[in-house]
Simulated assay, not measured.
Amino acid sequence: MTTTIARFAHLQIPLQDVLNATNNFHHDNIIGRGGLGHVYKGQLQRSGELITISALRLDGKHGGGVVEFWTEVSMLSDLKHPNIVSIVGFCDDKHEKIIVTTYEAKNGSLKEHLSNPNLTWTQRLKICVGVARALSYLHYDQRRGYGVIHLNVNSSTILLDENWEPKLSGFKVSIKQSLNRMDQVVLSEPIGTIGYVDPEIGKSKGVTCKSDVYAFGVVLFEILCGRRAYIRNDANRLLAPLVMQHYENETLHDIVHPDLRNQISMGALRRYSETAHFCLKEDKIQRPSMLTLIDELQKTLEKALKFQQRREYFVRPSLLFFFFFYVNYFPWF
């Protein structure tokens, strides 16, 4: 029998509409594969408007994922932020469970672009600021009446739209918590993706909003180093201990993405790496809040923009000098 929770009834979408939108879940429309199932791109009619959607189709073969399905529907139905994916609706019909969101990933996920030489330092910093704003909204927004611990922050759940604006997704294991208890431990098994899991969980037997801060710190170093948090067959499989070692030995510059080295001033690198380093502190009390992180990253971004402007300023006059030099002294050139 179809399960429908009354307060989400307005979000329900008939199965036939989803089938029409995705051409019966045609394999050509698959745009992602995750732990819960495949994600399909499609065109859906809603309120007389044709919109582009992503449809996460729960893989029912293994019989799991129902709790995660309703968790994601519940979370997204309450969350409205420019840096968080927007829910269109869901389908819970004929043994199918499908979550439909607006299609945000026109540039894929951050994971696909970590080593992209064309993704500039300032673009990367803007992505960092956007994700920090999304997490700050989850942790502290008073209008919602409760906080959210995401617990799945990683470079795969950060989607990038056509303007490279980040959209946080992946709320399947998120936890609601009273706003005045966000720093207090919620009993939980270690949750998350390898390479991003808060090491404090094992000691405290639970999670706090600082577990998101730890995962975000890993993402900050992924962005700086241009590599993933976990590489299965690599000698340095885990990025977090590697960057902590280089940070403490003052050799972090050695593992910065080669295409970024000339784009980053030493001051900006120092400020950014110090911020990311504090996120990875084993003692969660020493980790900054997301509000502090927004402020620090915004200042780093401002410095990066000024550095970029200075570089452009010095390059342009030198080019003009050579142009006029050749015109005046070698008119036949």
Rank of each mutant, 00 (worst) to 15 (best):
L319F: 08
S169F: 00
D259W: 05
H257R: 13
Y40F: 04
S86Y: 01
L305H: 12
N107V: 02
L220A: 08
P258M: 07
R271D: 11
Q45L: 14
Y137V: 04
E302W: 05
T71L: 03
S178K: 14
R232S: 11
L220W: 04
S211V: 01
K167A: 03
L19A: 01
S318H: 11
T292R: 15
A105C: 03
L269N: 02
G89Q: 03
L319Y: 12
P241H: 11
G267T: 07
D198Y: 02
L242F: 14
I191F: 03
V153A: 08
R7A: 09
H246K: 12
E248H: 14
F69D: 00
I149K: 00
A229M: 07
H81N: 06
P258G: 03
E49H: 12
R287A: 08
R228T: 10
A55F: 00
L19K: 15
P241Q: 10
K284F: 15
R261G: 06
G34S: 05
E49S: 09
T157D: 03
K210W: 09
F278S: 09
S155W: 02
S211R: 05
M244T: 12
T292N: 10
E302N: 14
S155Y: 00
F323I: 11
D92Q: 13
G206P: 03
N262T: 13
D259R: 07
H277K: 13
L291T: 15
N107W: 08
R144K: 05
M75E: 08
G147A: 05
V18P: 07
R227Q: 05
G60D: 04
Y146D: 01
S169E: 01
N116C: 04
P14R: 01
M1L: 15
S136C: 09
A6E: 13
T292K: 14
L11R: 06
Q184E: 15
L291E: 12
P190D: 03
A55G: 02
G63D: 07
W70E: 00
S54D: 02
I223M: 02
L297V: 14
K80H: 12
H253E: 15
S174P: 13
R143I: 08
S178A: 15
E72V: 04
R237Y: 11
Q263C: 05
Y140H: 12
T22R: 01
N116V: 04
P317K: 11
K306C: 06
T101I: 07
L297Y: 03
K167M: 00
H277D: 11
P82D: 00
K111S: 08
W164P: 07
A21Y: 05
P199N: 02
